[in-house]
């Protein structure tokens, strides 16, 4: 599996000793995103404990785990929704501090949240451009935004919405999902994070989203996708990361896992088969 190291800057060599080292990936390729020892507590609840995770550029990483394992919390931390209680984050080998969603989006991280985070009272165009509206002489440039939205939806073959001026609150679950994904894709990001993007979707729309994920990774964009559907995971993922009760219990190339071992990891937090597969690879 080829990875596309995107930078050859000075920092990566400097950080290699102290900083992130990938597991199961070509160690000479710097990771796009590395998390080290990330901990997050909500009062007494320890939602994340000492999480280490590496996300290489241009690959699809699937984040799996049971309900309440801490998957959404992890991606919200990466996306700047809340600061980690402790731990560090490296972007292309360099330590970064992401305090707000704006910081994350400046780095090139676009996130589709599980609850989608759309404004029901705004229409599709207004949602697609929220926070980065086109303006002309201080006034919103509605026409260019509308045209670009139409084009993006067409590129992603989202054909079911009648008008891009429809309020998002009036869309079906699948259409809302499509809008949220399209919104993330339109931002020319280097890492697209999707929290259960196919959960509300029918068969053909699920296939569309999976195709979309493949398209993104073929363009060199890294994707971190959370899913409970192992079929989807084994269809699109290059790598797997498993969370169990707030800890990241295992991560590596998809070849190290099979369906049974993945289920075992999700439900018990460990699996002898994964260890065996990993050592045989």
């Amino acid at each position: 599996m080829e990875s596309t190291p995107e930078n050859n800057d000075l920092t990566s060599s400097k950080n290699r000793q102290s900083g992130p080292v990938g597991s199961g990936v070509d160690p000479s390729a710097p990771m796009l995103l590395s998390l080290r020892d990330i901990t997050k507590s909500f009062g007494a609840v320890q939602a994340l404990q000492h999480v280490d995770l590496d996300i290489p550029a241009g690959q699809v990483t699937a984040l799996i785990g049971d309900n309440g394992a801490g998957k959404s919390t992890l991606i919200k931390t990466v996306s700047g929704i809340w600061a980690p209680t402790s731990g560090s984050m490296y972007w292309q080998g360099q330590e970064v501090h992401v305090h707000t969603p704006r910081d994350a989006s400046h780095l090139g991280i676009a996130t589709v949240y599980q609850d989608l985070a759309l404004c029901d009272n705004l229409d599709i165009v207004q949602n697609m451009y929220l926070g980065r509206e086109d303006t002309k002489a201080g006034m919103l440039d509605e026409i260019s935004m509308e045209l670009a939205t139409t084009k993006t939806l067409k590129d992603l073959s989202v054909s079911t919405v009648k008008s891009v001026r429809q309020l998002v609150g009036s869309l079906s679950g699948g259409q809302r999902q499509a809008v949220a994904v399209a919104r993330a894709v339109m931002r020319e990001s280097q890492l697209v994070i999707l929290d259960e993007p196919t959960a509300a979707l029918g068969v053909s729309q699920t296939a569309q989203v999976l195709d979309l994920i493949k398209t993104l990774s073929s363009r060199g964009i890294a994707v971190l996708v959370i899913s409970h559907n192992l079929n989807d995971v084994f269809t699109v993922a290059d790598r797997i990361a498993v969370m169990y009760l707030g800890t990241l219990v295992s991560h590596g190339p998809i070849a190290n896992y099979d369906r049974n071992s993945a289920v075992e990891m999700i439900t018990t937090g460990k699996s002898d088969r994964v260890a065996a597969l990993a050592s045989s690879n």
Binding site: S79, I81, T100, P101, R102, S105, T111, Y113, D115, L116, A117, L118, C119, D120, N121, L122, Q126, L130, G131, R132, E133, T135, G138, M139, L140
Partner: peptide, 24 residues
Amino acid sequence: FTRYGRYNFAIGSNPFAARAAGIN
């Protein structure tokens, strides 16, 4: 017709989404 007004409606509609979109 301006961003300021757009953000006003966005925050009134869903403050979490507005914040996630980078609005202060």
